[in-house]
């Protein structure tokens, strides 16, 4: 206790104010610091991520289709039967392109190639059509396609069409070049459109509005929205902007 501390003198008023500030700020700081130290406990092992929307089946590298093995067979009324179980009995062929009674599950959508017997041998149904009336086992299916798709077949032979799984270097392991029918359904060879997997979430804003499904990406991409504001074009014109930009 010091007697000379007289709060009324002007010099000491500043000091008193200091003290008031300090006595408020000190504890506040202390509390804040305590909160930081005690409150922010060391992080536990990082919690597991939320389950991603991508399922294992979406990124399975297995071929799209299983290829037919010799001797060829098919499921008829749930029972697996060889082609010649029936076709050896009689010539069941019409080859007119009209709807069939049997094999109604086969939807032929191969453009101009619209006759079954362009590919399936008439006499021996367990074989495919080869050059000059020859016959091909299903194991050589690419020779069938090659008869009509020469350039693509050549690409495939060189490895620039289709896909090789496994090893890029045969010295280190077995390369597995997929055949045509592991990617293409021979009856409807074009690829079906599919749903894309989720894109990057950078710059992605808000959830999609079903009303504007056709413009989803424009709606969500702030860069494009920003562009519209900047150039004063209405958002619905952004589609047109593309075509103008890409016209040359």
């Amino acid at each position: 206790m010091t007697p000379e501390a007289a709060p009324s003198s002007p010099k000491n008023r500043g000091a008193a104010l200091n003290e008031v500030i300090a006595s408020i700020c000190g504890p506040l700081l202390l509390l804040l610091a305590l909160w930081f130290v005690l409150g922010a406990a060391p992080t536990a092992p990082v919690p597991d991520a939320a389950t991603p929307v991508v399922r294992a089946a979406d990124i399975d590298p297995a071929p799209r289709f299983q290829r037919m093995t010799d001797p060829a067979s098919t499921l008829i009324a749930g029972i697996r039967q060889r082609c010649n179980d029936c076709h050896a009995l009689a010539d069941l062929s019409r080859n007119t392109g009209e709807p069939l009674v049997q094999h109604a599950n086969i939807m032929l959508n191969h453009g101009l190639n619209d006759r079954c017997l362009n590919c399936h041998d008439r006499a021996d149904r367990s074989k495919l059509v080869g050059l000059h009336g020859g016959k091909l086992p299903y194991a050589d299916v690419e020779q069938l396609c090659a008869q009509c798709h020469g350039p693509i077949y050549n690409d495939w032979k060189l490895g620039t069409h289709g896909k090789t799984l496994g090893y890029w270097n045969a010295g280190l392991g077995q390369p597995n070049r997929l055949v045509c029918t592991e990617c293409h359904n021979p009856h409807a060879p074009a690829y079906e459109p599919i749903r894309p997997l989720p894109g990057p979430h950078t710059l992605r804003m808000g959830s999609p509005d079903p009303e504007v499904a056709t413009h989803i990406s424009e709606q969500r991409n702030p860069l494009i929205r920003w562009q519209d504001e900047e150039h004063g074009t209405a958002p619905q014109n952004s589609e047109q902007d593309y075509t103008e930009g890409g016209a040359h």
């Binding site: 459109p193 599919i194 749903r195 894309p196 989720p198 894109g199 990057p200 950078t202 710059l203 992605r204 999609p208 499904a213 989803i216 990406s217 424009e218 969500r220 991409n221 494009i224 593309y242 075509t243 930009g245 890409g246 016209a247 040359h248």
Partner: peptide
Amino acid sequence: RVIEMPRGTTDIEQGDHHYDRPTVP
């Protein structure tokens, strides 16, 4: 990063990184 590009250009500044369509292509 897969970029959706308008046909007829290779200028990637015109591409969309965030396309999200019901089906592609």
